[in-house]
Design a protein around this nucleic acid. Structure first.
Lengths: 192, 192
DNA sequence: ACGTTTCATTGACAATAGTCAAGAGTGTTT
DNA sequence: AAACACTCTTGACTATTGTCAATGAAACGT
C-alpha cells in the first residue's frame, strides 16, 4: 500500500525505512467511484490527494459551463491548495473520471509532518515547485500558441491522458469549445 | 538595505536578528537600468531576483512577438525557476521596465541557505505556494472568462501595475493584441 | 527644444472561435 | 431488444479577435 506514493516521494527525497513508516502513519487511504466527488465548490478542502490508481479532474463552473484546471492520473497529486491551506471555501470541484484509489494527507497530518519531518517539507517544496513550473509553461502556451499547436503539444506531453479522457474535457482543459476541438482535429486529419 | 526583502520574508517566516544577519550575508544587491536585461533566453538563470524598487517583466518571444508571463514590482520575486534549478537554458527573458534595485539570491547562496537555514526553506516553500495559487487563478480566468472581464479583474487586482505599465504589455500579459485591448477599453468607456 | 521612437487609437477586412441545432455512433441499463 | 445517456461530428450563422495600415499624441534622448 502506498507504493506509488513513496516511489514518487523518494524520487525527490530519499527516506530511510523508519522515516517511511513514520510518514505512513499520517496517511489515509480512500477509494472513489467514477463520478464521485472528492471536493465540491463551497466546501473546505480537507486533504491533499495523491492518485495511486484511476483518474480525477479539478474544475470550476461558470454559468453552467465547466473549465478543467487539472487532470490527475496515477502518480499525480491534486487538491484545492488555497482552500486547504487557508480553510476558506473551495472554488474548484474535484471528481473521479474513473474508479480511483487515493492517498490522502489531511490538514492535521500536513501540519504535523511539517513540524516533525523536515524531509516532508522538502518534498512539498519540490512538489509545488514542479507544479509551478509546469503551470507557467501551460500558461505561456495558452497566451502564445494557436489552439492547434496547444492541442498537439498536449497530446505529445500527456498521451496517456489524451487517450483516457473524453475529448470535450480536453477542449475544456484547453479553454475552447468541444466543437472547435473537433474541427481542429478534422483539419489536422485532412492534411495527412 | 534589503528592508523590503526582509519585511516580506518576515510576513511569512519571523526571524531573529542573528538569523537575519546570517541570511543577509548571502544576498547580492544589483541595480538595473530601464531596458536592461536581467536574463536573456538561452543563458542560464543565475539568480532569483527580489524587487526592492522599480519594475521588471518576464516574457517569451515567439515568431518575433512577445508574450509576458509575469510583471514584478516592489516586493515581488522574479526568476526563470526552471533554468535556475536545473542549469538548463532559459526560455524566458527578464528585463527592466523602470530603473530597478534588486536583491539577488544566487544559485550558490540558495543551496547554502537551504542547507543551513531551515527558515529559508520554509520561506521558499510558502513563496512558491503563493505564486502557484495565483497562477492557477490566472489560468482559470484565462480559460473561463471573456477578455473584458479578464481586463477588469486585472486592473482591480493590480491597479498599480495597470498604471505603471504600457497598455500593449497588459494586452500581451492577457494574451490578446494591443488593438483588441484598445477596442475593449473603448467599448467599456462608451457604456458609461 | 528638436527630432525620434514608442504608444494608443481607428478603419477595413480576414481569420478564428462560439452558438445553436441536428444526427450518428457507443455503450450501459433495464 | 429497446430506451437512454453520452460523445463526437457537422452545418449554418454570429461574434470575437487578428492583421495591416495610417494617424496623432506623448515620452525620450541628446
Amino acid at each position: 500500500m502506498y507504493e506509488l506514493f513513496f516511489q514518487k516521494f523518494q524520487e525527490k527525497v530519499p527516506l530511510t525505512d523508519e522515516e517511511q513508516e513514520q510518514i505512513k502513519a499520517y496517511l489515509t487511504p480512500k477509494k472513489l467511484r467514477k463520478r464521485q466527488y472528492l471536493l465540491q465548490e463551497g466546501e473546505v478542502c480537507k486533504a491533499i490527494a495523491f492518485v495511486e490508481r484511476g483518474a480525477l479532474r479539478e474544475y470550476s463552473v461558470d454559468n453552467g459551463s465547466e473549465h478543467i484546471l487539472q487532470f490527475a492520473i496515477e502518480g499525480w497529486t491534486i487538491s484545492d491548495l488555497f482552500s486547504f491551506l487557508t480553510g476558506e471555501q473551495a472554488t474548484y470541484n474535484i471528481d473521479a473520471l474513473e474508479d480511483a484509489e487515493l492517498v490522502l494527507i489531511t490538514k492535521g497530518a500536513h501540519e504535523e509532518l511539517l513540524k516533525k519531518q523536515p524531509k516532508y517539507e522538502t518534498y512539498m517544496r519540490l512538489l509545488i515547485t514542479g507544479a509551478y513550473i509546469a503551470l507557467q509553461r501551460r500558461l505561456t502556451s495558452n497566451i502564445s500558441l494557436p489552439v492547434e499547436e496547444r492541442y498537439t503539444s498536449f497530446t505529445e506531453m500527456y498521451p496517456d491522458i489524451a487517450q483516457r479522457v473524453p475529448q470535450h474535457m480536453i477542449a475544456s482543459f484547453m479553454g475552447v469549445k468541444p466543437e472547435t476541438l473537433s474541427r481542429i482535429r478534422k483539419k489536422m486529419a485532412d492534411r495527412k
